[in-house]
Design a binder for these strands. Structure first.
Lengths: 125, 125
DNA sequence: GCGATTTTGACAATCGTTCTCAGATAGCCC
DNA sequence: GGGCTATCTGAGAACGATTGTCAAAATCGC
């Protein structure tokens, strides 16, 4: 059974409060700065749980960190990410879903899953 | 100026000899096994150089490793990767390129670059 | 409140990658 | 071929993100 603890709530809250993607380390630092005596390992565990439950999105940054973000639209979607300020826009892409499924099928691949993210420099940067 | 050393040649060769994506560590192990007293750091450097020169493709595996692969088609392309055996198929996707550029433009993002990879289980797995 | 069970947190361990620096080497000039 | 100098190499240390460990603390059902 999954228990309710203030630590998990704090992580979820801190994640929701952020606009873009955050690393686990950043989130931990922010929580500490905000007065929560929360442990780093706990933040990692909470984030992993959130990601599993579908409440958070995760992706790997170019330098190998895992970044997390509170999911706004629950379903499957992709991101347009500013490489300068980190601002993200969630994008729907039915065309891509279909394309991926079709390409996979054409090559005999089953259970296709895809990674599709677009990076760019946003208007205000 | 860039020098020609047998180490770099060995790395390039070992990479070309492999079919799918390989991690730097794997490549190093393979080279050592093949008799080359090459250093791990050198393999990393050589791979990074190859990637910069566009002679190798790189992507991050789901567990945080950097994987490399000798590029067959020189231009920009994507991959269909078997999550079981690691077999890869290079796929061209003009539609995706256009879609990415369009989505970026629609949101005011400049210099769009995108990550598009499809994972699945291939026919023989 | 009680007890069983899960969660936490400090710290160590791990793992891939990068850094450091002395020594080796490639490429150039003679 | 010999010499010179900038670049490259390799062993190991350093690094940074993440995960494992385990005793102590907290939660939930009763």
């Amino acid at each position: 059974m999954k228990r309710q603890t203030w630590q998990r709530a704090a992580v979820r809250e801190a994640l929701t409060a952020r606009e873009g993607f955050v690393s686990a380390q950043d989130l931990h630092t922010a929580l500490k700065a905000g007065g929560s005596p929360i442990g780093l390992a706990t933040v990692y565990r909470a984030l992993a749980d959130l990601a599993v439950d579908g409440d958070a999105d995760s992706l790997q940054s170019s330098d190998g960190e895992n970044l997390y973000r509170a999911c706004i639209s629950q379903g499957h979607h992709h991101h347009l990410i500013c490489r300068s300020c980190g601002r993200t826009v969630e994008i729907e892409a039915d065309a891509i879903e279909q394309w991926a499924a079709q390409v996979a099928a054409a090559n005999g691949f089953r259970e296709p899953r895809h990674i599709v993210d677009v990076f760019g420099t946003c208007a205000s940067c």
